[in-house]
Design a binder for these strands. Structure first.
Length: 323
DNA sequence: AAGTTAATAT
DNA sequence: TATATTAACT
């Protein structure tokens, strides 16, 4: 609602971390393949910790050598690819009987739960806003987002959720009782019953364009003359691999790792930092010290689910990190 | 084929 | 429980 829409792209770009700032230091303790192969679907499962800018002060011996099995396909070195964003899918080939999981990962694999981080969502909203509700379809959005690893389904699902959110908001605004949720919590202050505060906050993270609620009123600009589809689906990678920050969220395991790492876990306060993310990078970015900006309110989309659930692989991609 | 909705799994 | 994923339908 503010600023010129003409420079949206500029701003957008600015928000994106520089290649040098990218630092998807993800250490996969347990390769997904392995975990899955072992059928570890319990609290103790795969563990991918996103080492961000941690290990900078108190970090005894950082995990030096990443085990053989890694997300990096050895046979191929698809590094030379301009990937705008990347979502590391720690999927695996569930080849239990054989154990030979070193095949072509990314093929008939079940992706882990994708965690929509505020940033990612922001990107999503951004794309939708730029496309316009009418053109805001999963496919288009997905392409606009250029988030590698993101599938149409992911977007569709999220889009659906987002639509509900918008509708709800609209309903509240209109004064009509939608009836969807009996809870009429205040938009920003109160909370909704159906949707958690987390969702509210997540969506609240990004301002909802006005035209969003006004179908039929294509407000001015659809910014975005050209789509930054820097990395459409490449025939090779299609959408199963990536190289970004993937994190398998594991409630219990995570805490453990968090401890091991020193911190970076979920602070009691709720302040978090996501200084890393992979965007258009093709070089082995190195870690960055500490992001100067980054005023994320406090979203803990990493673990923190704890439901007595086990085996919950969550993939978290961190697209742009700025709000 | 794509998009949307509903149901299911985690 | 809520969220994300998957399936089915339109």
């Amino acid at each position: 609602m503010r600023d010129d829409d003409s420079n949206w792209f500029s701003r957008w770009e600015e928000e994106l971390p520089s290649p040098e700032e990218l630092m998807p230091l993800s250490q996969t303790l347990i390769t997904p393949d392995l975990a899955l192969a072992f059928d570890i679907r319990n609290p103790t499962n795969t563990a991918t910790i996103n080492t961000t800018s941690l290990m900078q002060q108190n970090q005894p011996p950082p995990p030096p050598p990443p085990p053989p099995t890694a997300n990096t396909p050895s046979p191929n070195h698809p590094l030379p690819h301009s990937q705008p964003n990347s979502a590391e899918y720690a999927a695996d080939s569930a080849d239990l009987g054989s154990g030979a999981a070193g095949d072509e990962p990314a093929r008939t694999l079940k992706r882990p739960r994708l965690v929509w981080t505020p940033q990612l969502h922001k990107r999503f909203v951004d794309a939708v806003a730029h496309l316009g509700i009418k053109n805001a379809v999963p496919k288009t959005i997905m392409q606009l987002m250029s988030v590698d690893g993101l599938t149409r389904e992911n977007v569709a699902s999220h889009l659906q959720k987002y639509r509900l959110y918008l509708k709800r908001m609209q309903g509240l605004s209109s004064g009509g009782s939608g009836g969807i949720n009996g809870t009429g919590g205040g938009g920003g202050g109160g909370l909704a019953a159906g949707s958690d505060a987390a969702t509210e906050h997540l969506f609240a993270s990004s301002p909802v364009p006005a035209h969003f609620l006004h179908p039929g009123r294509p407000n001015s600009d659809h910014y975005l003359p050209f789509v930054p589809v820097a990395a459409l689906q490449h025939p090779h990678h299609q959408q199963q691999m990536a190289a970004a920050a993937a994190a398998v969220a594991h409630p219990q395991l995570h805490s453990q790792y968090h401890r091991q790492m020193g911190h970076f876990g979920s602070p009691p306060n709720g302040q978090f930092e996501h200084p890393f993310l992979a965007r258009q990078t093709q070089q082995p970015v190195h870690r960055i010290g500490a992001p100067v900006h980054n005023t994320i309110p406090g979203y803990v989309e990493d673990l923190e689910s704890a439901s007595g659930n086990g085996g919950r692989k969550v993939l978290t991609l961190f697209p742009t990190g700025d709000d």
